[in-house]
């Protein structure tokens, strides 16, 4: 399997309150590990992973954002060009669930593009649940997005987040792909067909197991 080859390059951003486990979900997904000693994210961190969806390879460029409220000023500038959004809350932090709608609205306000979203309730491993599954489902239904409960600690359902997101991304990209062949020059940089990655890709990048 060639690491460099992919069909589409897609930007995905992960949003949610501070401390809900955004970085841990990504570390589990991209590097297959969970670290107790992790660091609060400042600004935005970056991960790459190639996702196989049926016969296609989608290269995900995942933006891991700082969750503290006052960082939203900065966060808004990331939204541009995002094709996928993962909204995360913590099952043991009621506030983080209450704030999800705020995050969703900030996206609706700043982008008119259609994005593939998914709602994730993390920390399924904890006994101290404060948000019921039905509540998450209801919220996801309201905004017409898939919903999933996960544990980054136990690596439970983490792959599923990206599989489900990947399915939706593929459908959308294939629709757009038809448009591209009609009007190839109008496409912006974040959307590329059958692109070969050149050799400058760093081996130190966080995901080389894909």
């Amino acid at each position: 399997m060639s690491l460099g080859y992919y069909d589409w390059l897609v930007k995905v951003i992960v949003l949610g309150d501070s401390g809900v486990g955004k970085t841990n979900i990504l570390t589990q997904f991209c590097d297959s590990k969970f670290s107790q000693n992790y660091t609060a994210t400042i600004g935005v961190d970056f991960k790459i992973k190639i996702l196989n969806v049926q016969d296609k390879k989608i290269k995900l460029q995942i933006w891991d954002t700082a969750g503290q409220e006052r960082f939203r000023n900065i966060t808004q500038t990331y939204y541009k060009g995002a094709y996928g959004i993962i909204f995360v809350y913590s099952l043991i932090d009621r506030n983080s669930f209450n704030n999800v709608e705020g995050w969703i609205k900030s996206i609706l306000e700043s982008t008119t593009d259609e994005v593939c979203s998914i709602l994730v309730g993390n920390k399924l491993d904890s006994q101290d649940r404060r948000v019921q599954t039905a509540e998450g489902e209801k919220l996801a239904q309201k905004y017409n997005m898939p919903f999933i409960e996960t544990s980054a600690l136990e690596n439970k359902n983490i792959q599923d987040i990206f599989d489900r997101l990947g399915q939706n991304l593929k459908i959308r990209l294939e629709n757009e792909g038809q448009k591209v062949s009609n009007n190839i020059h109008t496409q912006s940089g974040q959307f590329k067909l059958n692109q070969e990655v050149n050799q400058t890709e760093q081996p130190t990048s966080s995901c080389n197991s894909c």
């Binding site: 400042i42 935005v44 970056f46 900065i74 966060t75 940089g189």
Partner: peptide, 19 residues
């Protein structure tokens, strides 16, 4: 061009280079 400030400049500024 296309390089978001949060990827590098904001981190240096807000953590005084520690990040």
């Amino acid at each position: 061009k296309n390089v978001n400030d949060s990827l590098w400049l904001s981190k240096m500024i807000l953590s005084l280079f520690i990040y």
